[in-house]
Design a binder for these strands. Structure first.
Lengths: 247, 247
DNA sequence: CGTATGATTGAGCCTACTCAACTATTGTGG
DNA sequence: CCACAATAGTTGAGTAGGCTCAATCATACG
């Protein structure tokens, strides 16, 4: 019996949460349209563009952002391998955010229109998609909490913890060291800080023994204390699938 | 032929977006468990409680919040008549937020477990539920943008515009005046300000002719200028249902 | 009438910002 | 292959906006 194409982006992603049955696998393979390379600095889509596709990041780093009236940039979310980009776009016919690549990489494309086949044929995959959007919302509300009300050092602790916990979902070998190919300006624009403050506070975190830095790599030296600093809850480790319909 | 119970909370809510077919109506009526009164100041559920129900607000005002390590409160979202509370909770078995009532009112309850019947039998309602969560996420990201990066007066403009646009969805007679039964501390805890700053800035907005205040009522006097102030986009007016499966 | 809660206003302070200079790193073309 | 330009990061000095603290006023409620 031939194994189905194992490296389909969504199959890899979804398998972390559910045991997929064969019909679900076939459906996801059928939905996958194509791959698309991107290069560092590329604008994948702009605010106002029609939402036609759903992306899954196969490799590389990207971030979604808007521009404020005064020209400053606000980064809503950073994406890395395994992340699904564009679920919130389902509610609107046009993108609310710009999407820019921070490094080179590869995206998998899925037609937005085709996704309703999931709704029609697989209640179980539907429930998973639903939960993933719900989780994004919860995470966004925790980002809000950290970015609005905490001191810069706690905001950065939150940012780093959120990233590493996300990376651990798809990469179980990930422990405390990870590459962070983002400028300090992007980090600042995510957590409501200037690049200057990011620089100062990262240095402070290093001298306090919370982190260590090597080139583009970050090592978490005292994850426990970082968690306390920003009252962190890992929202990636668990997802409640107990209520899902049977496949 | 007897009309189905017309005042079911979810039917009223969903009818704003979709033409519901009879089977969908029957399903929603079947799912509705009961009503529940609440009084001002009541804690409906606490962070950590099991997520068993989905609420729809029939009347009254509530807000969801967390407590920061230093004791301060962060309000994530304010709810009013017509709002669905608890969709993001679907991803987790326990609540991430506390829910408190600001006024007395009535909630409609739906069993979380029963919702998968929607996933199994109505792709069209499923798509709507999905879109509603997606919309919430978009709105949350816009709140983040305003609360993190804008001056206090723009944050308050955003807060008031967001509220009135939401009220207009379910109440078409709503024009520029609405009741705002929230303390300035709650407003501040939503937009990352202190009650003191809220007081000062609302006074400033009034003297600049942006708003007017009568007791608990707010009147928007120059909505255009308020929209410019915070670069507001109405996310409630439209919802892309074009891609939905047919019923 | 007294108490509790919420709103207003003033004074002073502190944190993260702006502005600016400088260093480090990366990439490109002659 | 090196020189130069462009981008990113660091560090210092001064500033200002929103915070804290505190007193007063307003309103609601038993």
């Amino acid at each position: 019996m031939p194994e189905p194409k194992a490296d389909s982006c969504l199959i890899t992603n979804f398998s972390h949460y559910l045991e997929l049955v064969e019909t679900d696998r076939q459906l996801l393979i059928f939905l996958e349209r194509s791959e698309r390379k991107f290069f560092a600095g590329e604008l994948i889509y702009a605010r106002g563009d029609r939402t036609v596709d759903l992306f899954v990041v196969k490799s590389g780093w990207l971030f979604a952002f808007t521009i404020l009236p005064d020209g400053r940039r606000h980064v809503v979310r950073v994406y890395t391998a395994g992340d699904i980009i564009g679920l919130p776009a389902f509610a609107y016919s046009h993108h609310a955010l710009h999407l820019e690549a921070s490094t080179a990489g590869i995206l998998c494309l899925f037609s937005k229109k085709a996704l309703n086949q999931v709704f029609e044929t697989s209640p179980r995959l539907t429930a998973l998609l639903f939960s993933l959007v719900a989780r994004e919302e919860v995470i966004l509300s925790e980002t809000l909490r950290a970015a609005i009300r905490m001191r810069p050092i706690a905001r950065l602790a939150y940012f780093l913890l959120d990233l590493i916990c996300r990376l651990r979902v798809t990469n179980s070998t990930m422990t405390t060291r990870f590459a962070l190919p983002l400028t300090q300006a992007v980090i600042g624009d995510t957590m409501g800080l200037t690049n200057v403050t990011v620089s100062r506070e990262l240095t402070a975190m290093e001298s306090e023994g919370l982190i260590e830095r090597f080139m583009d790599d970050i090592v978490l030296r005292d994850e426990m204390r970082m968690r306390e600093l920003c009252d962190y809850t890992d929202r990636y480790a668990t997802l409640d699938v107990s209520w899902f319909p049977r496949s």
